[in-house]
Amino acid sequence: MFFVDLNCPACVQLWRWFDMPARRQWATLWVPVSHMHHSSTGRGIALLRSAQPRAALQENYGEGFDRSTRTGGLAVAEDETLAELSAIRVNTHFWRTSLFEATPITLYRRRNGTYWQLLGQLPEPQMGAAFSELGSAVLPVFKAPR
């Protein structure tokens, strides 16, 4: 799980690390928060609205990201609903009050069952080492009653 601001330059590096053929099939959850720019909420809502979140993240953190102004390439959502605004506010509140107030933050479970958070973006070799310790994703299996 990744807490990101869609206007965060360090989040660009995290996205580019993950957007590699060997890692594209990993199950990930990108949680938008708003703190870097007045457009962060609108970009976060645009990500939540997207039917193809991976494509939206690529649009935002790819060539369209403007490092000089620290703004993502994803168009800011218009006509936000109260529910959409609330979703970003809840994400941001949890991130601010329960985690360390920096982006990106990665929460993950190691193979030994312990939970960890990684603040910011590490250089390539260290990212590989950190994520080699990931525990496998296990989804519960439910049997229908007979």
Rank of each mutant, 00 (worst) to 15 (best):
G42R: 00
G42H: 01
G42T: 03
G42K: 01
G42N: 02
R43C: 07
G44V: 01
I45C: 02
I45T: 02
A46G: 11
A46V: 07
A46F: 09
A46Y: 07
L48S: 05
L48I: 06
L48V: 08
L48P: 04
R49D: 05
R49N: 09
R49P: 07
R49Y: 11
S50Q: 09
A51S: 14
A51L: 13
Q52N: 15
Q52L: 12
Q52Y: 12
P53D: 04
P53L: 09
P53S: 05
R54W: 15
A55F: 08
A55E: 14
A56E: 03
A56Y: 04
A56C: 10
A56V: 05
Q58M: 04
Q58E: 15
Q58T: 11
E59Q: 15
E59N: 04
E59M: 11
E59R: 12
N60V: 08
N60H: 09
N60D: 15
N60Q: 07
Y61V: 04
G62Q: 04
E63Q: 14
E63F: 05
E63V: 12
E63S: 11
G64A: 14
G64S: 11
G64R: 14
D66S: 07
D66E: 12
D66M: 07
R67L: 15
R67K: 11
S68P: 05
S68L: 13
T69M: 13
T69N: 10
T69W: 11
T69V: 12
T69L: 13
T69C: 07
R70I: 05
R70D: 10
G73A: 06
G73K: 02
L74T: 02
L74M: 07
L74K: 02
A75L: 11
A75H: 10
A75F: 09
V76N: 02
V76S: 05
E78Q: 15
E78F: 03
D79W: 04
D79K: 13
E80H: 09
E80F: 04
E80S: 12
E80L: 12
E80D: 07
T81G: 00
T81N: 00
T81C: 01
L82T: 12
A83K: 10
E84G: 02
E84L: 04
E84K: 01
L85W: 02
S86I: 03
S86C: 06
S86N: 12
S86P: 03
S86R: 14
S86F: 05
A87R: 08
A87Q: 11
I88P: 00
I88H: 00
I88L: 02
I88G: 00
R89M: 02
R89I: 00
V90S: 09
N91R: 06
N91G: 06
N91D: 05
T92A: 06
T92W: 01
T92V: 05
T92L: 04
T92K: 02
H93L: 13
H93Y: 11
F94M: 09
F94N: 11
W95M: 09
W95E: 01
R96Y: 10
R96M: 13
R96W: 10
R96C: 07
T97D: 12
T97Y: 10
T97N: 11
L99R: 06
F100N: 08
F100K: 10
E101Q: 10
E101Y: 13
E101F: 13
A102G: 15
A102K: 14
A102E: 09
